[in-house]
Design a binder for these strands. Structure first.
Lengths: 316, 316
DNA sequence: AATCTTCATACCGTCAGGTTATATTGATTG
DNA sequence: CAATCAATATAACCTGACGGTATGAAGATT
């Protein structure tokens, strides 16, 4: 007959509480219940667990050693309990999140930092990808959440899309760039400089083309391509190159002063930055937490961007 | 709702076995049983424990952390199991044993050493006392077993007495003693030497007196009294004093060659060395083991003493 | 598509363990 | 030492968690 961990725990509770009745209170049970359980256990073990007929209840030697294990069981049980609670409140667990490189590096990474200080027990697994891949990964279940610009009518089936920010691109350059000081920039000015292009397959690359076409630039020289945000910033800092970036990315760099936007209006792309997740796959609490966190963060970001925009307008 | 340690253990078993069916085998249960248990647990926790519709059964993150605790529970349970088995076979536990000082030091201690090498997990609590005290201690339940010379008709009530060795006293002295070389010793020889007396209250003290009276010595000089066996041996080694000791005690010192017995026959006391324990207090397995061990040891000892006796006789 | 393996569901019986009420029994005290 | 108190044991009853077998459903494999 195998021994029941619950019984071990019960013994520990009785001993630590100092009596059957007190132990029963600790265990949220009635006194007769634990009394009978002890009696049955004694019978099964074939030896006494508490000395018979001694009123300050005295545990047997065997009982003591069993209670020792019982305390271990109790700890494990309590640990499991708190683990479940943390988990179900989304305060522990893992969130696997992927997104387009520039956004992840330029915007989301900062939010993830904030999230991790708020929820240190939630592990984040980050990866990169564009819409097609992200959709696949969500479908297979390799990631929980994708962050990606999407045109509302091309949302893949079975995926839920929640927009969080209007797409808005700007022409970006280093603060040291000759054009950065000018209050107004003309097309002829721009034409002289080389361009940094995002990776060929990325949406930003098509954005770059359509944006430049929209302001009449059809022929442009690409001097650097394929790098992620850190490379792009470095290259811009050391050259006169220009590039097209989401304004939010530029905005997030405002304190670091590594990028500025030129005062030229580009055509908005149809796409909108948003969160994607699988519809019929229930979201884990930690992921939900992260999602909510991102939403409020983006709301704050949008507000700050608006403010700054108004300021900029007011200054002119 | 509190979490059940059994469930934690079950999760660990399932994961470690690599499937519900395999886990069920490990747990000695049917597959549907564990399947249902898992389902109920999932419902109570409000989150999945195994990913739905994946055939190489994949545990959830939460399930993994719970299983971790489950393994701890499993270990504790197994430890308890072996503890119970060891205990009930008398291979672990405590035996509280008391007895008359000279016997304990001179005979029992050697046997306890042998016992502890055979049963290293049985702790022995030794104490000293004479019959009255021993009886009290047994009655109160402070000791499990007493080893003591008892005259068969003065066995205290409620106590069981099992004789293990005939009482037989001898006159003892150091091997370096002038009388030790003599093949026959006369009373006049003895009269010249001082005596080491056991503690005044001890049975051995009365033995000393009656023994000496039995051989006609009424007036004797006591040069040292009150010491336990180690002291007596030391004093004898450094002096010409004599004393009366149980032959078994002298016998046990044969290899150490610290004491010899003089070839003088003393009157046997009525008492018989034996084991005492409480009648209606069930004996713990470890105590029983120790009791059995003592019995066989004493049997062996008695045989060896007989042999030696025959040898000694043969030599003359 | 067919088959195989494994998990889920249905249904039923049993017993550990929950409850309340009450008896027993060490311990305590005047 | 009787009386009293407090704690444990017992009785009687009931519920539901969990055990089993039989069978359906669904991934995985060929």
């Amino acid at each position: 007959m195998k021994i029941d961990p619950n019984h071990l725990h019960m013994l520990a509770a009785i001993i630590d509480a100092g009596g059957l009745s007190e132990g029963a209170v600790v265990l949220n049970k009635s006194q007769p219940s634990v009394s009978r359980s002890v009696a049955m256990l004694e019978q099964r073990l074939g030896s006494r667990l508490f000395e018979k007929g001694k009123r300050p209840l005295r545990p047997t030697e065997l009982c003591q050693t069993l209670a020792e294990q019982g305390r271990i069981v109790g700890h494990a049980s309590a640990a499991a309990q708190t683990a479940v609670e943390l988990y179900s409140r989304g305060k522990a667990g893992t969130a696997r999140v992927a997104g387009t490189p520039i956004f992840m590096d330029g915007v989301i990474s900062n939010m993830m930092a904030a999230f991790q200080t708020a929820y240190p027990d939630v592990a984040i697994h980050q990866s990169y990808g564009y819409l097609a891949e992200l959709s696949d990964q969500l479908g297979v279940g390799n990631i929980d959440l994708a962050i990606c610009p999407v045109t509302p009518n091309e949302v893949p089936p079975h995926l839920n899309f929640r927009p969080i920010m209007r797409g808005r691109n700007v022409i970006a350059c280093a603060p040291s760039h000759p054009l950065a000081r000018k209050s107004s920039v003309k097309l002829e000015d721009i034409a002289a400089y080389p361009w940094i292009a995002p990776p060929a397959g990325s949406p930003l690359y098509t954005d770059l083309k359509t944006a430049l076409e929209s302001i009449g630039i059809t022929d442009f020289r690409v001097s650097f391509t394929g790098g992620s945000l850190a490379s792009i910033i470095s290259v811009m800092a050391g050259s006169d190159a220009l590039t097209v970036l989401p304004y939010s990315v530029v905005f997030m760099q405002r304190t670091a002063k590594t990028i500025t936007a030129l005062p030229i209006k580009l055509l908005h792309p149809e796409r909108e930055l948003g969160l994607l997740w699988h519809l019929d796959r229930p979201m884990r609490p930690a992921v939900l937490r992260f999602l909510k966190f991102l939403e409020t963060e983006f709301k704050g970001l949008a507000d700050r961007i608006d403010e700054r925009g108004r300021e900029a307008i007011w200054r002119r």
